[in-house]
Structures are given as C-alpha cells and as structure tokens.
C-alpha cells in the first residue's frame, strides 16, 4: 500500500527517497538536508491519499481487495461468526437488496436477520414488513428483544403492484432502516429498480422467496437449507451465498439458526 502511494505521489518514484524516509529516524538530528526531505515526503503523502479516495469515488465499479469474502469491515455484523467470515465486508451490506431463498417458511429465515433487526431498531429506524405471508406476532418479537413500536406492517391483501410501490418508496425513505418483503417471481427490471431505490435511500431491502432467480441484480443472494440430523432437537442450517457482490464464487457455511430445544 505504501509503495502504491508513492507511485501516485511523485511522478518519478526514487527508491532513494523512500529509503531515506526510514533512515531519517535513526540518523542524527543535525542532518538537515535529509530531515527536510522526509517532511516533504510526509506532506505529499496526504494529498496522495485523497487522490486515491477521489479515484475510488469517481469509479464506483473499481474492485477493491477488501470486497473479498471475509475482508474489510464495511458490513454490518450478521451476528453469526461463520456467516461473517464468508461475507464481503464481514457482514450484511449497508444498503442494497438482498434475497433470502428458503424452500418453505419456517426454516429460520427470520432468525437469520434478528441481530440485524435489533441493530436497526437500536438506531431508531423503522422496519417495514410488506405483505408478510402470515400475521406477524408481536410477543415473539419482544422475546427476541425487538421494540414493536418501530415496526410497521403493510397488509397482506395489497396487490403485488402496490406492494412493490410501497417497497420502493420505503427503500427511498431514510427513516426505514430495513424493508422486508415476500414476493416470488420478480422480473429483473423490477429488482434493479428496487436495488436502485435502496441505494439512494441508504436502506437495506430483503426479499424472501422460494425460488432462486439467476442473473438477479441483487447485491446478496443466499439460500437457506435445513440439514437433517440424527438429533431432532439440534438443527443446523446450511447457508449458501449464491451471490455476494465482491465474491468470486458461491460460498457455503453452516449456522445454527434455531435455538436448541
């Protein structure tokens, strides 16, 4: 990283100057010429850093090493260490659209997001549930440590078009920290629109679905699968990261979503 900075700083990178930077600390304070050089090198390092930032800002598509699985710190912790380890930025993305694919409801898809929900509520943001498949049960949320005062539910019987509209508006709204929606079979165009809305509103949207759709523009696509085990009381789920922006290939981990009974 350091050498990279120097490459950008000075048009002619002199290995001599780089060497003197380290040598100056040990050298006698009397060596004025050298210490001057060092200070000038330090000063020029600062604008160079800015230049990199500017470069990154200008080209958002620029890939960074910290985008790799388990690298960087720019994610929100999922609350599951093994899952953090395979997610870029070591956690859920700050904004964007995620797809959670579960073969049937009840496999712990909400348990997966509970730590995130607690985090959102603690920030004072709202959680919007758009047309959930069943009635949301408040005592369970309170047991999970989630304040129900910041939870809004949009009715089940609203049409798909309205539900998508609501979702888009909510994603654009900065007071909604998390938007959860249950929709199968959304075309890529719609998903891209939702992804854009989430980007502008700095909001995280989560789509729950039964089937995976290839080529979806969502930032993260993961699948939950139950692993049958001999001990019925102990259940573990396999989470496959089909896609996570930054990862090269699908990754897989095992997480215990449901508490042992």
């Amino acid at each position: 990283m350091n050498s990279l900075k120097h490459h950008i700083d000075s048009p002619e990178p002199t290995p001599h100057a780089a060497f003197s930077q380290y040598g100056a600390i040990q050298s006698a304070p009397g060596a004025n010429g050298i210490s001057n050089q060092v200070s000038s090198a330090n000063q020029s390092a600062e604008p160079g850093h800015n230049e990199i930032d500017a470069l990154l800002e200008r080209h958002p598509g620029l890939w960074r090493g910290c985008d790799l699985a388990g690298q960087g710190q720019h994610g929100r912790s999922t609350g599951f260490a093994s899952l953090d380890a395979i997610l870029p930025g070591q956690g859920w993305p700050q904004k964007g659209l995620m797809e959670v694919i579960a073969p049937c409801w009840g496999t712990g898809e909400l348990q997966l997001l509970m730590p995130l929900m607690r985090d959102v509520i603690a920030k004072g943001q709202w959680i919007l549930w758009v047309s959930p498949p069943f009635q949301l049960y408040a005592p369970a949320l309170e047991q999970a440590g989630i304040d129900t005062q910041q939870i809004l539910v949009v009715d089940l019987d609203t049409s798909c078009k309205d539900a998508l509209w609501t979702m888009e508006k909510a994603l654009q709204n900065q007071h909604c920290g998390l938007v959860l929606a249950w929709q199968n079979w959304l075309p890529g165009k719609v998903l891209r629109r939702l992804q854009l809305a989430a980007d502008t509103g700095d909001t995280l949207g989560v789509l729950f679905k039964h089937n995976d759709s290839k080529y979806s523009p969502s930032q993260v696509r993961l699948q939950i699968k139950d692993i049958p085990s001999a001990d019925q009381h102990f259940s573990e789920s396999e989470i496959t990261l089909i896609k996570a922006r930054g990862n090269f290939r699908p990754r897989r981990t095992r997480v215990q979503l449901q508490p042992r009974l």
Binding site: A138, E142, T148, L152, V153, V154, D155, A170, N173, H175
Partner: peptide, 26 residues
C-alpha cells in the same frame, strides 16, 4: 424524524387508500 415518516405515510395512504399500514403491539 416523524415529519418525514408522516410524509411517507401520507403517500402510502394516498396510493393504497384506507388504512393499510398497521403497527403491532403485544
């Protein structure tokens, strides 16, 4: 905080009609 949320609620109400947005309590 609430004013922005109110705007959002108004938009929802204008589009969806009635009272589709609910909050839950135990």
């Amino acid at each position: 905080k609430n004013s922005n949320l109110d705007l959002f609620m108004e938009q929802l109400r204008a589009r969806l009609g009635g009272q589709p947005v609910r909050s839950i309590h135990s």
